[in-house]
Write a protein that binds this DNA or RNA. Structure first.
Lengths: 217, 217
DNA sequence: GCCGAACCGTAACGTACGGTACGGCTCTTG
DNA sequence: CAAGAGCCGTACCGTACGTTACGGTTCGGC
């Protein structure tokens, strides 16, 4: 088992065939939640259970690989910090907000967060840590430079970028994630998401926007 | 089974002995997460499995009764809407915020939310619905009259009380709940909670406080 | 064409756990 | 004190599922 786990742990990502398997797990996870069985995975992915164990070690390894696989799929366009004005800053923030809302309201994200939450409840805290790291914290790492650039440009005012980010996070996510995780039917239309993103951004600017206008102009 | 479930469903709450059992479940839930077994419950509560099934029907019934029992324990002092001024409104909001932060960061709440989340992932959506109803939505029902009273008194400005509440909710909770659910060690001291409550309240007032001062004075 | 490696499909194993049955103890009621 | 109800402790049953084992098939390299 141990030597099997390492087969995927280090080195490059999964092979094409392995990616197919992980995508099957993802789909099954959305349908079945965390009660998916290894047998069901093998059947859905048209592979043998022996192969699953050989590749991923055990059930936890399979789930971990799946979470990482999904996380690796979200590509992030870096934000250019040049020529920042209020318009482009607003656009960036709205973009972040709507992207984030779309992510956390997707079936895949909800399913993945569910298994990560239940996993975090047991001794195995891995999945929760990964989801947190690739979700909430990755977002913070991406957004904070934008906020700091906004401060540099005299558009924003705040002491602590982390705290400012958490405020933005709260204004964007509000009760959406917990409601979805708890099974609330929450229909988010594209228009609704864009509207929420705009509202959250305006609220954030109302709280942290510079009162004095741009510093250097 | 069906007739057994009804033994607790309707009528008054659980007996003293049953409350002891449910408290044992609560403690076990905090320690073990959702992998607690009926045998473990019986042992911890010093009762027989036969009794568990007689009282609660099945495992789900036991968990449901536990969630409801915990929910019934949070008593809510109603807020008086008389003589509302900015000071008392601020105090009320801070009170709500710190209470809520204390609730969602408690071991019990985290454990309960975890089982509700995993339950919401399966066909049984009951637990998730209950937690949502007794948590997020109950808070909204309690807070909205306060917000509306604040608007009546000319202290707050907003169009939709539900939207205003969700903003407040986001400012208070931010990333706390999802981080705790995903297993992040997040030490919240009493002082920190009070500080967060005050900050969230000030931010909310900055967004929705009346610009023109109290209406009638 | 032959060999070994990789993999598929399936059968088999072991175990953990939900749920049930039962013997014995205690306590109430008449 | 007798009878019965309620409950504890434990043994038991059935099943679902993680994990392993194995025979058969495909495929790349010699």
């Amino acid at each position: 088992m141990l030597q099997a786990v390492t087969e995927m742990m280090e080195g490059e990502g999964p092979t094409a065939r392995q990616q197919d398997v992980l995508d099957a797990v993802l789909r099954l996870l959305v349908e079945e939640g965390d009660r998916l069985t290894m047998t069901a995975v093998a059947r859905r992915a048209s592979c043998s259970k022996e192969t699953l164990y050989k590749w991923f070690g055990d059930r936890d390894g399979l789930l971990t690989a799946t979470v990482q696989w999904q996380a690796s799929k979200v590509r992030v366009p870096p934000v250019d910090r040049k020529g920042l004005d209020l318009v482009s800053l607003t656009a960036s923030l709205e973009r972040f907000a709507s992207d984030w809302l779309r992510v956390i309201s997707s079936d895949t994200s909800v399913a993945l967060n569910r298994v990560a939450v239940v996993h975090a409840g047991s001794d195995k805290r891995d999945l929760g840590a990964i989801v947190l790291e690739r979700g909430r914290f990755a977002l913070g790492r991406r957004l904070k430079p934008v906020l700091e650039a906004g401060r540099e440009a005299g558009l924003l005012e705040f002491d602590d970028a982390e705290e400012a980010f958490r405020t933005f996070f709260g204004l964007v996510a509000r009760d959406v994630q917990i409601r979805l995780l708890l099974g609330d039917r929450l229909e988010l239309t594209d228009a609704g998401i864009d509207g929420d993103a705009a509202r959250a951004t305006q609220q954030f600017l109302a709280l942290h926007g510079a009162k004095t206008g741009p510093k250097a102009l």
